[in-house]
Design a protein around this nucleic acid. Structure first.
Length: 475
RNA sequence: GGUCUCAUCGUCUAACGGUUAGGACACCAGGUUUUCAUCCUGGCAAUCGGAGUUCGAUUCUCCGUGAGAUCACCA
């Protein structure tokens, strides 16, 4: 198998949202599965749009997801530098080469003059093509004018690893800007140089680039470069509506999902299966399985909508996949405050009870608070309960007293408590729906909780006795 | 307007040209000695339209329709 080299090459223009991250993920997956190289290059050639701190945020986002890079601005590598603004002399050399070959020329027009051309074209209902206005005697390029590619318009037909065969007519090719007048290269130019110099074998990018691909192909031809494998990924669409997911439409920072209690492996599973499947009925994939099974030829051609419900479900699935120790490591930031003084043993015991109930790690706080702090009796909860509202005050007190007496004599492991509770059903002659609901409420005062005997055993004898006693007093 | 792309349940998707069009999420109903959740069982629900090719089209071709992208000294 040939060694695959892929890259993720974002612009430092702000936080990362799921659309961008998915492109990185797919590139990373195919590199991983061939034991190849995934590298991180930063495309900071537009100084106007650049946002301070973006690079750190991009790196943090990828690391959170579990995507690592073998080469990049922070780790270096033999094809560096990986920050485009530090490669300006390289682009200049290649630009000059094109000038020398007669394939690039300085643009003598002002923006205003170009605008006139465009408007005239529009007025006569013709498409605007810069190449129809090529200057006869372009000035010598000194780096202060923009430099344009002298295109060689023709029809192209090419293979896309996802989309299959794609084609365009010569109309799609025009003289585009290679170097801007501020001395920086355009994306259209420098990404091609960098991909070549960095040995990139597979270029993955999202659908909006499909219409500029013929321009790239024309430039590859001029530079006599064999193009890498091109793969076009369909959009991730916004949750509602039919627009591609973008920051303006409320796309969230990927790091926010971590803060909200989503597991990175669940997010990775979600992103990978958004537009890809392995052909089986498997829905839940570990990272290892994704690396093994992912393939570009099973990537969907059409856009997929971001479905939060599915992400939430997957997150629950992945939470259930974790061992208690692993889960314990993950939830450090999500305990209720009252848990801070608790022991690891107790916390693990609580986790074993609530694990199946968590959809996000952030659910932990609500689901577990009564294990760490004594709740205040709230008898209105009993009045709201269909079964319990039938009991009068005396019956409540009586049942709880019997439960208290029985439990005081119980060994406090889960199965003893279970036995005790079962005996109590017989001695009181009550239905479980009434007896258990009552006791459950008395020890938790929560709308829901794990199985009663587990809950009681985990609370421990002292705490259980205290709580039932308090319930009897306030009934 | 030019160029280009896409099209199966509400959503994510499966189906060498031959299946009662399958699965998952969501939703609804039932089950697992209380509750919530997990888990299990069942239910609801789709091939954009029209021609053509074929014994037979979700699948191939064409024409519509719809949706999207792009036509920057942004990437």
């Amino acid at each position: 198998m040939t060694t695959i080299r892929t890259r993720f090459a974002p612009s430092p223009t702000g936080f990362m949202h799921v659309g961008g991250v998915r492109t990185a993920l797919f590139a990373w997956l195919i590199a991983q599965q061939s034991n190849g190289t995934f590298l991180l290059r930063i495309e900071d050639t537009d100084k106007v749009r650049e946002v301070e701190g973006s690079i750190q945020q991009i790196e943090q986002s990828l690391r959170w997801l579990g995507i690592d890079w073998k080469e990049g601005i922070d780790v270096g590598g033999e094809h560096g530098p990986y920050l485009q603004s530090e490669r300006l002399n390289i682009y200049r050399q290649w630009a000059q080469k094109l000038v020398d070959q007669g394939r690039a020329y300085a643009d003598p027009y002002t923006k205003e003059e170009l605008e006139v051309f465009r408007e005239n074209a529009k007025a006569s209902k013709q498409p605007f093509l810069y190449r129809n206005h090529r200057p006869e005697q372009p000035p010598v390029w000194d780096g202060t004018q923009s430099l344009r590619f002298k295109s060689d318009p023709k029809a192209y037909k090419w293979q896309d690893a996802v989309m299959g065969e794609l084609s365009t007519g010569p109309e799609a090719i025009d003289d585009f800007v290679l170097m801007k007048s501020d001395g920086y290269p355009t994306y259209n130019f420098c990404h091609i140089i960098d991909d070549m110099l960095m040995g990139i074998t597979h270029v993955l990018r999202s659908q909006e680039f499909i219409s500029s691909t013929p321009k790239f192909l024309n430039l590859y031809d001029a530079l006599e470069i064999t193009p890498p494998v091109l793969a076009t990924l369909p959009y991730v669409m916004a949750i509602d509506g039919k627009k591609k997911l973008g920051k303006r439409d409320g796309a969230k920072d990927i790091l926010d999902y971590g803060k909200e209690g989503y597991l990175p492996e669940a997010m990775m599973n979600f992103l990978a299966t958004l537009g890809w499947n392995d052909g089986t009925e498997q829905e839940v994939f570990t990272t290892t399985e994704l690396i093994e099974k992912f393939s570009l030829d099973r990537v969907q051609k059409s856009p997929a909508r971001f479905d939060e419900q599915r992400l939430l479900w997957l997150n629950g699935q992945h939470i259930r996949l974790l061992s208690l120790d692993a889960l314990y490591e993950r939830v450090v930031d999500f305990w209720p405050e009252s848990a801070s003084t608790s022991t690891k043993e107790h916390k693990i015991a609580v986790l074993s009870l609530v694990q199946d109930r968590l959809k996000t790690l952030a659910d932990l706080s609500v689901a577990s608070s009564y294990f760490f702090e004594t709740p205040t009796p709230n008898w209105s909860m009993a009045d709201d309960n269909k079964q319990l509202r039938k009991l009068d005050q005396e019956e409540r007190k009586n049942l709880l007293s019997q439960a208290l007496t029985a439990l005081e004599q119980s060994d406090f492991d889960a199965s003893s408590v279970q036995d005790t509770l079962n005996q109590l059903l017989e001695t009181t002659g009550q239905k479980p729906g009434i007896l258990f609901s009552l006791v459950r409420l008395a020890v938790s005062w929560a709308p829901f909780s794990p199985a009663l005997h587990d809950t009681i055993a985990t609370l421990g004898k002292d705490e259980t006795v205290t709580r039932i006693s308090a319930a009897i007093e306030t009934a």
